[in-house]
């Protein structure tokens, strides 16, 4: 009897915070602004190197042709990211992720690894996936999305596997749990 009454009284006398409080400022939330040209969010500086792509590139004109050249590779990378983003198994991983940048760096990585003459400007695989808590099941889901994108683009299965062969050994730097 006493406790609800006391609670009620305390609710009356409790001061509400001032309206219009800037909670981001109160809690020190920093807002990143997208680059007006590229549309990408800024990242902490890192050393750029093709070694960050995680594997040595192929040297095969036929393989590049199978993927539809640089344009085809860029489309496949973009499509993979779109499929992953709408895949209920792994969508949550990408929720707070800069998808504009991911599409560009993934495209560069595929292009570099397939020997289509791009430079990879992204971070290395460990840094890029740090703290994301990626599981092997997540990897499998992404592989399936990439396979779908390559299949839609008409890439022969053996050529699909050659790209996967470059990516598969990177799993130990990506899978965290």
């Amino acid at each position: 009897m006493l406790i609800p009454a006391a609670t009620a009284v305390l609710m009356v006398i409790q001061q509400a915070p001032a309206e219009g409080t800037d909670w981001d400022a109160e809690f020190g939330v920093e807002t990143k602004q997208r680059d007006p040209v590229t549309g990408e969010l800024p990242v902490d500086p890192y050393e750029q190197s093709n070694a960050n792509a995680g594997a040595a590139p192929y040297d095969s004109a036929g393989l590049v042709r199978d993927f539809g050249g640089r344009d085809g590779i860029a489309r496949i990378a973009g499509r993979t990211v779109d499929l992953a983003e709408s895949d209920p198994r792994i969508a949550v991983i990408f929720e707070s992720h800069d998808m504009v940048r991911l599409k560009r760096t993934l495209s560069e990585q595929f292009c570099y690894l397939l020997g289509a003459g791009c430079d990879y400007t992204g971070r290395d695989m460990r840094a890029a996936h740090d703290g994301m808590g990626v599981t092997k099941a997540d990897m499998n889901a992404l592989v399936e999305n990439l396979q779908s994108a390559m299949r839609e683009a008409g890439v022969p299965f053996a050529a699909q596997n050659r790209l996967l062969a470059k990516l598969a050994p990177m799993s130990r730097k990506i899978v965290e749990r």
């Binding site: 609800p4 009454a5 609670t7 009620a8 009284v9 009356v12």
Partner: peptide, 8 residues
């Protein structure tokens, strides 16, 4: 006791 309802 009706106080809680009156209160909020």
């Amino acid at each position: 006791v009706t106080a809680p309802h009156i209160a909020y």
